[in-house]
């Protein structure tokens, strides 16, 4: 991937600069946890390289991975809505480099500048809608042994 993350691409340059002014470079070593289910969603990330696994805590067994996110993708949307708690956990699969953004400051930017806020939230809704649609497709279990694909 050589292009900007879709979130940054969606923003006009001035808005992009304001958002990136809040961003910090972060590196996460292989296996490190970025956040845990139920923890405070006080930041989010734009993944620049590497892979992040989203998992769910299930007592008695390794946390099942429900989805992975890679370069260019937005990690985290629980910071948008109260109670600002993570719905899932996240773990680095291999080294991960990301831009980290502080949730409260970004929400304040949105509140102060409705045009900026609308653009940003519209992108976030697209991310959420894409993941909802992907989840629905996976619910169909299309690759199941019987009634699967073509010959």
């Amino acid at each position: 991937m050589t292009t900007l993350p879709p979130l940054l691409d969606a923003l006009p340059e001035a808005h992009r600069d304001r958002l990136l002014a809040l961003a910090h470079d972060r590196d996460f070593p292989d296996g490190s946890r970025l956040f845990d289910e139920g923890g405070p969603a006080d930041r989010f990330w734009l993944v620049r390289s590497g892979e992040v696994a989203l998992d769910v805590y299930v007592p008695g067994r390794p946390a099942p991975v429900v989805e992975t996110l890679g370069a260019g993708q937005q990690l985290g949307w629980s910071w948008i809505f109260p109670p600002y708690r993570w719905h899932l956990g996240a773990r680095a699969v291999g080294p991960v480099r990301a831009w980290e953004l502080p949730a409260a400051e970004v929400r304040q930017l949105c509140a102060d500048d409705p045009e900026f806020g609308y653009t940003l939230m519209r992108h976030c809704v697209e991310v959420i809608a894409d993941r909802l649609q992907a989840t629905r497709i996976r619910l169909l279990d299309l690759y199941a042994p019987v009634g699967g694909g073509p010959p």
Binding site: T3, V66, T68, A134, R138, Y143
Partner: peptide
């Protein structure tokens, strides 16, 4: 769609992979 505990690759629908290529 359904990783086992040893899987270190991508999890999700195939269309998500479109974001991984130029």
């Amino acid at each position: 769609d359904q990783p086992d505990p040893t899987w270190r690759g991508t999890v999700g629908v195939v269309t998500a992979l479109l974001d991984r290529i130029d």
